[in-house]
Design a protein around this nucleic acid. Structure first.
Length: 234
RNA sequence: GUGGCAAUCUGAU
C-alpha cells in the first residue's frame, strides 16, 4: 500500500491523476486496502485538475469506508477555496465540527482562514481564529502568519504588527515567513525605515533571510526606484 | 534513460 500510494502521489503531482486512479484500481485488485494517505493524495490530485465532483465522491466513499482522515478533509476544502468556491468549503467545514475521524483541526481552520483572507474578508478570518480557541484548538504560527498576510495585503500593517506581538505573547515566535510578510506589507506602503528596522530585528533574532525575503525587499526598492539601496542589500 | 522516494494550511514575482 505504501509503495502504490507513493507512486500515486508522484503521478498526482505531475498532474497524471488518470494514471494514479488506474493504479488505485490495480492496488484494490490485488486485495490491498487504501489508507488515509491514499485518500488525500487522490483527492488532492483530483482537486488540482479541477475535478471537484470526483474529489467529493471519492472523499465521501472513503469516509464511509473509514479510510479518510482530517488531512483528506483539508485537502478537499483547499481545493474548493482555490477555485473560489467558498460556500462549499465552509459547508464541508461545518459538517465536520463534531467528534469524528475527519473532525476539523488547526489546519482546517487555517485553510479556511486563508481562503477568507484572500477574498478580503478579514472579519470572518478573525472570527475563525477566535472560534478555534473556543473549540479548544491552539492556533499555530501558520494561523497567525495567515492573518498577518491578510492584514498586510489590506495595508493594515499596524494591526499586523500588533497581531505579531499578540502571537509572541501566546508563545508563537515569528519566523522567516512572518518577517517576509511584514516586510512586503511595509515596502508596499512605502515604510522603508520600519522595514529596515525589522530586518535588523530579524538578524538579532537569528532568523535566516531566504530567497523570498530578498526578492521581497528587492522588489520594494526597485519599484520605487531606489536601486542603490537594492544594490546595497546584495 | 527528465530527480522520484507517500498526504493537507501561511510569505516575494
Amino acid at each position: 500500500t505504501v509503495t502504490f500510494t507513493g507512486i500515486m502521489g508522484v503521478l498526482c503531482r505531475k498532474g497524471e491523476v488518470e494514471k494514479a486512479l488506474k493504479l488505485y484500481d490495480v492496488m484494490i485488485g490485488r486485495g490491498l486496502k487504501p489508507n488515509d494517505y491514499t485518500c488525500s493524495i487522490l483527492v488532492g490530485g483530483l482537486c488540482r485538475t479541477k475535478r471537484l465532483d470526483d474529489a467529493v465522491n471519492l472523499f465521501e466513499k472513503m469516509v464511509l469506508n473509514g479510510y479518510a482522515s482530517v488531512v483528506c478533509l483539508n485537502t478537499l476544502m483547499h481545493g474548493f477555496l482555490e477555485l473560489g468556491r467558498r460556500e462549499e468549503a465552509t459547508k464541508l467545514f461545518k459538517e465536520n465540527l463534531f467528534f469524528k475521524e475527519t473532525m476539523a483541526d488547526v489546519v482546517s481552520h487555517n485553510t479556511l482562514m486563508d481562503g477568507f483572507c484572500k477574498t478580503g474578508d478579514l472579519i470572518a478570518a478573525k472570527k475563525l481564529l477566535h472560534d478555534m480557541k473556543v473549540r479548544g484548538l491552539v492556533p499555530s504560527l501558520v494561523s497567525f502568519n495567515t492573518l498577518v498576510s491578510g492584514l498586510c495585503k489590506r495595508g493594515d500593517i499596524d494591526r499586523a504588527l500588533d497581531l505579531v506581538e499578540y502571537a509572541v505573547n501566546n508563545g508563537q515566535m515569528p519566523d522567516v515567513i512572518t518577517y517576509s510578510t511584514l516586510l512586503d506589507g511595509l515596502c508596499k506602503v512605502g515604510r522603508f525605515q520600519v522595514a529596515e528596522n525589522l530586518l535588523i530585528q530579524m538578524h538579532e533574532n537569528r532568523i535566516e533571510v531566504d530567497v523570498v525575503t530578498y526578492s521581497t525587499i528587492l522588489n520594494g526598492y526597485c519599484k520605487t526606484g531606489q536601486l542603490q539601496k537594492a544594490q546595497k542589500i546584495l
